[in-house]
Simulated assay, not measured.
Amino acid sequence: MSAPVHSLFITLKRSLAGTREHHVRILQSLGLRYRQHTVQQPNVAHIRGAIDKVRHMLTVETDVQRAARLVAEAAAKAPRPPLRVQH
């Protein structure tokens, strides 16, 4: 019985300008097109291998990590109760 395959969320952090052609082709095969573009890919060996070749240009999160980050960001943006000052 194999473990469940989680998703990877891959975000391109650097521009494609000035990047080696081989790296550009790897990024395009991952589905990344422009800076700050995020794609969801399955967590399988050939995807992880492609990520390792251009890791310096990417941010990679699992679905669990991304969900936790989004919850934390939403909590930070949530309105806080007003301060009550008694004079």
Rank of each mutant, 00 (worst) to 15 (best):
L12A: 00
K13N: 11
K13V: 02
K13L: 14
R14T: 06
R14K: 15
S15F: 06
S15E: 04
A17I: 07
A17N: 12
A17S: 14
G18T: 02
T19R: 10
R20L: 13
E21Q: 05
E21T: 06
Q28G: 06
S29C: 10
L30V: 08
G31L: 11
L32T: 01
R33Q: 15
R33L: 10
R33F: 10
R35L: 06
Q36D: 14
Q36N: 13
T38M: 14
V39Y: 03
Q41L: 13
V44W: 04
A45C: 12
I47A: 05
R48P: 00
G49T: 13
A50Y: 00
D52C: 11
K53W: 05
V54F: 01
H56S: 12
M57K: 03
L58P: 00
L58R: 02
L58N: 05
T59K: 13
T59E: 14
E61S: 09
T62N: 10
V64N: 07
Q65D: 10
A67N: 11
A68N: 07
A68D: 14
R69S: 15
R69Y: 02
R69Q: 11
V71L: 11
A72N: 06
A72R: 11
A72S: 05
A72H: 01
E73D: 15
A75N: 01
K77D: 07
R80C: 07
R80P: 00
P81I: 02
P81W: 00
P82M: 05
L83W: 08
L83H: 10
R84K: 14
R84Q: 06
R84H: 05
V85S: 13
V85W: 10
H87F: 13
